[in-house]
Design a protein around this nucleic acid. Structure first.
Lengths: 152, 152
DNA sequence: CCGATATTTCAGAAAGTTCTGAAACTCCGG
DNA sequence: CCGGAGTTTCAGAACTTTCTGAAATATCGG
């Protein structure tokens, strides 16, 4: 790893934190590096600075694109892909919330709606359904608020 | 696994989702099971219902206790530990937010404060520090809001 | 203090994930 | 259509996490 010390501290921290969020270490590091970089970087820049394999960077960038967390740009007369993060931090926060909702809340709501449609057999299932309805209603309330906020 | 079908669907879903949050499959399943159960359960109940090893349940319960997500109770004349989740869903949400803050935001703020204290060497480090300050200020703003909300 | 019951710890097996180098693919200018 | 620059894919190696059974520890009633 070939970075100024301040940058390195930040990059390593995000590598560790990445694991707590569903992203892996390298993905966290790539993101942190792009976030701090004054210029967009291409894949080989990232390889050189982080000291990981070219293919690992390729996969990491693909994942960051799937999360909508990086912007892809080109330079005139250079056909390599250059990556950067949005300058606006709020934009980043909004994207993160949006993506997490899509991956965690939405599938859960779908599952809850399905099981709430079924008829319960026995007292335990009746109680279970009541608990699931509570959770379902709370999730709806929260996503409703979120949609309202978003509109501002 | 030995559960009514409705309950099983929910439990399996939370097992999968658990992996997306930093908790493992078994922990997610135990939590889901306790959430739906009309009665507090002891460790052997959980073993029987989920079909996992006794020691795995023991570790899972320990982790849930570390997260403050389960309540431990006792019954007269029975010295086994019985576990349940708080009835109030809002309580659960608050706990989750609180714990994630403690594990993700607070360490990051500490790291940011440290690197912001250091003097930058070179243009790249100056730019990097400015970006870090932006992030630091945003995090402070968000935790401030959170603290305000919490008071209500 | 003993025996019975309950829980926790822990080393290693099993499962899952991340990372790499090599090969395959894509795209462009000439 | 060829050569080369850039990128992606993929099988397996390296590493990490999870899970288990066995042993250790704790706690209580008598």
């Amino acid at each position: 790893m070939n970075l100024p010390p301040l940058v390195q501290t930040f990059v390593l921290h995000f590598g560790e934190m990445g694991s707590r969020w569903g992203i892996n270490r390298t993905v966290g590091q790539i993101y942190a590096l792009l976030y701090l970089s004054p210029e967009p970087l291409n894949a080989d820049d990232i390889v050189e600075r982080l000291g990981v394999s070219r293919s690992n960077v390729s996969m990491g960038l693909k994942e960051l694109q799937a999360w909508n967390l990086v912007r892809l740009q080109h330079r005139p007369g250079d056909r390599r892909d250059y990556f950067s993060t949005p300058d606006d931090l709020w934009q980043i926060v909004r994207t993160l919330v949006e993506e997490r909702k899509k991956r965690e809340i939405d599938p859960t709501l779908t599952m809850l709606r399905e099981v709430l449609m079924q008829s319960p057999a026995g007292a335990d299932e009746i109680h279970a359904q009541a608990r699931m309805r509570e959770m379902h209603d709370l999730f709806e309330l929260l996503t409703g608020w979120y949609a309202d906020m978003r509109r501002l």
